[in-house]
């Protein structure tokens, strides 16, 4: 374990960004991913340990101009319980309810979940179908990156070492939007997904539009199901289309064999569970 030379806990964003500028700081928020990785020897501390939890700006939840902005320090428990979030983006609140345990939810943050870039991260699939933008800041400027372009591999993203995730910005869903989130693991609580599926679309006269489908734990990053979306977009949602979409999804995911599931089983789950999601949307 590398020795930590300096510990910083600034109360404002600019100080934090200044500390990050050299790119040699480890960012600590909830610590629920960081500490197990440190303890397992998978991640080493950098010389500066930067605790960002005292920065109030990063805790805000704001609605305006057709969007909702969620600060990076908003905990998973707040995602689940905050009435503004529940009303604006219920899918995110639902996903938070499947997230780890109460203890982890109380500490873990949405910014941390995004930064950790796990293919199985529980908020990432809903954020993908909600078309979120990741808000990044550094001492030299700010930028927004669409979720679909943010991840580059397991644990990897386009975030530079001198950048901090300050929050997520999401367009408010349109009227008549239907959305679903399914997480499948061996047990209902305290489990890492074998697969997860997010779905969002506008349903009008039996046809879907603005279809967004995302999958978790079936590739190196959480992914949008572009081929599946194309099958569903604008077509009448009937049994034939559901079967075609499920088959397309099964083909477009790129799962691997690991401890949690085989690639074959993951494809079967994607097929069967997407079919269930779409059937449920039809029947509602």
């Amino acid at each position: 374990m590398t020795a930590i030379e300096r510990y910083l806990a600034p109360a404002d964003l600019d100080s934090a960004l200044a500390a990050l500028a050299g790119g040699n700081a480890t960012v600590l928020a909830g610590g629920t991913d960081l500490m197990p990785q440190i303890n397992a020897g998978k991640v080493a501390f950098r010389p500066i340990l930067l605790n960002i939890r005292r920065i109030p700006d990063l805790r805000a939840v704001e609605v305006g101009q057709g969007r909702i902005t969620i600060g990076a320090l908003v905990t998973i428990t707040e995602l689940k319980d905050n009435p503004v979030i529940a009303k604006a983006v219920p899918l995110l609140a639902e996903a938070a309810d499947h997230f780890a345990s109460d203890q982890v939810r109380n500490m873990g943050t949405i910014g941390g979940n995004v930064a950790n870039a796990s293919p199985a991260g529980d908020t990432l699939v809903p954020l993908l179908v909600l078309d979120a933008q990741v808000e990044l800041a550094s001492a030299t400027g700010r930028r927004s990156v669409p979720m679909a372009e943010f991840f580059t591999g397991p644990g990897r993203s386009v975030r530079r070492p001198d950048e901090l995730i300050t929050g997520l910005s999401l367009p408010l869903p349109r009227l008549r939007t239907v959305s679903r989130f399914v997480k499948f693991g061996t047990r209902p609580a305290l489990d890492i997904s074998a697969v997860s599926i997010g779905f969002s679309a506008t349903l009008d006269s039996g046809r879907l539009s603005d279809v967004r489908v995302a999958f978790g734990a079936v590739g190196p990053t959480p992914m949008r199901g572009r081929a599946t979306e194309a099958v569903l977009e604008g077509a009448p949602l009937d049994a034939g289309l559901i079967a075609k979409a499920a088959a397309t999804a099964q083909d477009e995911v790129k799962p691997i064999d690991d401890l949690r599931a085989s690639a074959w089983y993951r494809r079967e789950l994607i097929h069967n569970l997407l079919g269930k999601v779409l059937s449920d949307v039809v029947s509602r």
Partner: peptide, 9 residues
């Protein structure tokens, strides 16, 4: 990764 039964099950 060693799955014990949890309360909901």
């Amino acid at each position: 990764d060693y799955k014990l039964i949890t309360a909901p099950e």
